[in-house]
């Protein structure tokens, strides 16, 4: 319930999810409500629902609203999906229409795809 920055979020993750390996923190950076942004959000939701079994948390950040975040997160391309947790950090750019690559990029094990 607390409003937190990165570190407390990790904490909330650990507490909210029972299984230690099941916590995904995904940040999707977009720039305005463009077609690409919408496609990316839709694709991400679909992939998460299909492959992550609700053990995830997604934050959508609009850089037009918070441009200062682009520098800190080293965002160049949009949309960019950053997998902050679990480590290692991964970045997936594009509208996520290539599901295969997103899954690989998120290190989702093929076993869980079923």
């Amino acid at each position: 319930m607390t409003v937190k920055t990165d570190l407390p979020k990790k904490a909330t993750k650990k507490t909210s999810s029972a299984k230690p390996d099941a916590s995904y923190l995904l940040k999707l950076y977009i720039a305005g409500q463009t077609t690409k942004s919408k496609t990316a959000i839709e694709n991400l939701n679909r992939i998460c629902v299909e492959h992550l079994d609700a053990k995830y948390r997604v934050e959508v950040i609009d850089l037009l609203q918070q441009p200062q975040l682009a520098e800190g997160e080293q965002i160049l391309a949009v949309p960019t999906l950053v997998k902050t947790l679990p480590e290692p950090v991964k970045r997936i750019i594009g509208d996520l229409s290539n599901t295969e690559r997103v899954i690989v990029g998120l290190d989702i094990k093929p076993d869980r795809n079923k």
């Binding site: 037009l64 441009p67 965002i75 949009v78 960019t80 290692p88 750019i93 996520l96």
Partner: peptide, 19 residues
């Protein structure tokens, strides 16, 4: 670190520069 999965543009860079 970068995985390319679909259409994108460099609006992020533009935003950074602009900011």
């Amino acid at each position: 670190e970068l995985v390319d999965a679909g259409e994108y543009d460099l609006e992020g860079l533009f935003i950074r520069i602009n900011y």
